[in-house]
Amino acid sequence: MELSDIRRDYTRGGLRRHDLPEQPEKLFEKWLDQAIAANLTDPTAMTIATVDEHGQPYQRIVLLKHYDQDGFVFYTNLGSRKASHLEHNSRISLHFPWHPLERQVHITGTATKLSKMEVMKYFTSRPKESQIAAWASKQSSRLTARQALESKFMELKQKFAQGEVPVPTFWGGYRVKINSIEFWQGGANRLHDRFIYTRTATDSQEWTIERLAP
């Protein structure tokens, strides 16, 4: 079979203007709850895109850990490639691909670092092995072999065996303030439904809502 022959129709329903709340977070919450209820694999997984100083885009998948009217939150090593990009260019894109529900959500915004208190609160809630892994991995750096990473993990596991794992100074998180958020619902005959919310002003909680052609 040729790759160009692979296709399917979208038949799970549409999205209409009267379905849309005034605040996009409410529709996102509804869709995320439905993705969780449908037992989708990693429903909070999102692709995030950043750009380096040469204009080269990069994408990777991280997990959404919180969201509200103030933005979408994720955590990472502050020495990682994505963190380096955000130091130079705080613009970021998020994408949730809920394929089994024939839905996508795409967000554009700007990322700002979380406070030390927010980072500490989340870090201490993680399983101890995940806390240790944060210390063991110098994210995005080159490794000679996986054994080096595993050895470092075991070394730190013994070191912290009897006590709490402190928050690494090089570990933190970001809050993405939404500039726009698009909701995509698959439709029959490729007549998909797309609506985009765009913030009316930088600090406004008011949005314009427009339908986009599929």
Rank of each mutant, 00 (worst) to 15 (best):
H85I: 13
H95K: 06
S90M: 00
P100W: 14
P97G: 09
G79C: 01
T76Y: 00
R81H: 15
H95W: 11
Y75G: 04
S80V: 14
P100I: 14
I92V: 15
R91T: 00
L86V: 08
R81T: 08
R91F: 01
L101N: 06
F96Y: 07
V73W: 02
H95I: 10
F72T: 03
F96W: 09
I92R: 13
S90D: 12
I92D: 10
T76W: 00
A83G: 06
V73C: 03
Y75S: 01
E87H: 12
S90I: 00
W98K: 06
N89F: 09
L101E: 05
F96I: 09
V73L: 05
S80F: 14
S90L: 04
K82G: 04
F72H: 01
E87G: 11
N89C: 10
S93P: 07
I92G: 10
H85E: 15
H95V: 11
A83Y: 06
G79R: 04
T76G: 06
H85W: 13
S80G: 15
S90F: 03
H99K: 10
L101Q: 08
F96C: 07
T76L: 02
P100M: 12
L94T: 09
S80T: 14
L78E: 04
H95E: 05
H99Q: 13
L78H: 05
P100T: 14
P100E: 11
H99M: 11
